[in-house]
């Protein structure tokens, strides 16, 4: 079993952190993992993405030319990566910002209004956890509880512990919607 996911969006939508949380959760779940960010001269409002590979054996390539899943937080991300997703894979997309449907018929699509859902839990910044929650439900790579723990530990370590409850809610919101 090897699963790879590209998390892509605007800089500031939190795809880099969501990828880290997923990698940490995968490791805590006993999987081999890699996390690789696009680290070009990105800035808020530009595009950002990272690739997470989760496997039950050591990960060879940290990059995937046909990822088993894509989390697209905005239209440019869907345009760029839609065609790369492996047949039978999953696309989780943010319908708040993406108005067109997925053109592929051979992938599972989870389309949810992430901006509105994040606003509902009280923080626009929690959009990345909404997306991650939906991805976890759709692919079952790790239990949601493991992701919550990983997220909480990472925020705690960065001195952002007060944001844990909101982010937990966001994970649940995404998970339940998928």
């Amino acid at each position: 079993m090897e699963k790879s996911v590209i998390l892509a969006g605007f800089g500031g939508q939190g795809v880099i952190l969501a990828g880290k949380v997923l990698a940490q959760a995968g490791m805590d779940h006993g999987l081999e993992v890699t996390w690789f960010p696009s680290y070009g001269p990105e800035m808020r409002g530009g595009t950002a993405n990272c690739t997470v590979v989760l496997s039950d054996e050591p990960v060879a390539s940290p990059l995937a030319d046909d990822p088993t899943a894509l989390i697209a937080m905005n239209l440019p991300s869907l345009d760029k990566f839609e065609s790369t997703v492996a047949s039978g894979g999953t696309i989780v997309l943010n319908s708040s910002l993406i108005e067109r449907p997925v053109m592929r018929a051979d992938v599972k699509v989870v389309s949810i209004p992430m901006n509105e859902m994040a606003a509902k839990v009280g923080s626009a910044l929690a959009i990345n956890m909404v997306a991650l929650g939906a991805y976890i439900k759709a692919t079952e790579v790790t239990p949601l509880a493991t992701v919550k723990t990983a997220m909480a530990q990472m925020l705690e370590k960065d001195g952002k512990g007060k944001f844990i409850p909101t982010n937990e809610q966001a994970l649940e919101e995404g998970y339940n919607a998928a």
Binding site: T34, F36, P37, Y39
Partner: peptide
């Protein structure tokens, strides 16, 4: 190289 410098792994 930049990949090994930037990527994360256990």
């Amino acid at each position: 190289d930049g990949v090994l410098g930037q990527m994360m792994e256990p």
